[in-house]
Design a protein around this nucleic acid. Sequence first.
DNA 1: GTCTATATAAAGATAGAC
DNA 2: GTCTATCTTTATATAGAC
Lengths: 220, 220
Amino acid sequence: MTNSTGASESQPAAPVRRSREEQRAATRGRLLEAAGEVFAERGFYGASVEEITERAGFTRGAFYSNFETKADLFLAVLDAHIERDRQLVTDVLARDPSANAFFELLKQRSAGVRESGETQRWALLWAEFWLHVMRNPELAPKLAERQAGVRAGIAEMVERQCATFGITLPLPAEHLAAVMLAVDDGLRLQESLDPTSVPSDLRARMIMVLFQGLAASSRR
Amino acid sequence: MTNSTGASESQPAAPVRRSREEQRAATRGRLLEAAGEVFAERGFYGASVEEITERAGFTRGAFYSNFETKADLFLAVLDAHIERDRQLVTDVLARDPSANAFFELLKQRSAGVRESGETQRWALLWAEFWLHVMRNPELAPKLAERQAGVRAGIAEMVERQCATFGITLPLPAEHLAAVMLAVDDGLRLQESLDPTSVPSDLRARMIMVLFQGLAASSRR
DNA sequence: GTCTATATAAAGATAGAC
DNA sequence: GTCTATCTTTATATAGAC
């Protein structure tokens, strides 16, 4: 904690100092990545600090100089994922004004493309975080904000698509987005237990049925 | 393990023997109930055998004479819930030929009736079981079978309702049931993090939109 | 900043008394 | 069949060397 230099943090620093910060960030990054894997594989309690640090190529000592506790690390992993997702949503929105990529994504998923290992890992992590939040309600806003971001992204896509096809929605796009997100999450839960329970084209067909119903509603 | 009587299990036994079996069943039941609560509150790892047995009014000794390990108890809790749900589905189907109770249930939920403590507990338990199954794939069929039962129950209700209104489904009722179950589960996940994110009448409205779309499809 | 060694605590499981 | 006492393992977290 003793810092002999009085330099402010925002000021560009001497090479030696920047190198140390980079090193620290690199260590943190490796620990965060390893933690994400082990937490997904074993759960919050099942994951031991030792296994995490070993997988990152360190020992426990290195860990405790970068994080306070295991719970601290757990929340840091969550924050990293939230930031990553937030960036991803805004990127897609900026790069795809016609909202085609969104429906392309849905079609791919509907076509039965098996989830990548990373997607599966994130599903496990998300369940861990959700349980953690349910038991620590003061953390709910953090996870809720991420979910709201995803929902808003979908809503924006839906609005663009509706504009393209001249559909007037009989309800706020945010609410429709909530349903579409729910269908995707809910079907994935069922698929995870039995892949044959959800036919590969069900998402695409349901989206179509949904929009047909909406069009029928708006024509009244 | 030494059993001095050679009587078969199905045969009515002497009072003293039946009493012991009842006592054993009662102990098991209390342990199972307490385990369900503690597993929901703290998770599989977070729950200690001591807290479970204490809540049931016993000590660890009583537990280890009824169950092999903590994991054994965990699976027994799951089995009890599966059996309970199976019974519930068949009961509803038998007692409600017109499928009104099912939609009444949906309407109640849509009307913003807050989940009971038991429902919330079951959601937590279900997440715990799901994670456990994801990490022990050989157990997947057990949970998948329960899910298939719920889905089949919904499908049966949908078919009855369609028969009543003369709707010809453009897809198997099981697939529509999967979507309806997905919407319910998915929306509950969103509600659990932020109750304001899902308006209270969204489920009911979506069901209507869905059936309007289906009717439009079937008229072609 | 990272490692080795260690203190401390908690929990799963067992043995034997009653 | 249940309880008390105990064994053993494992994991978090810390202290001090380098």
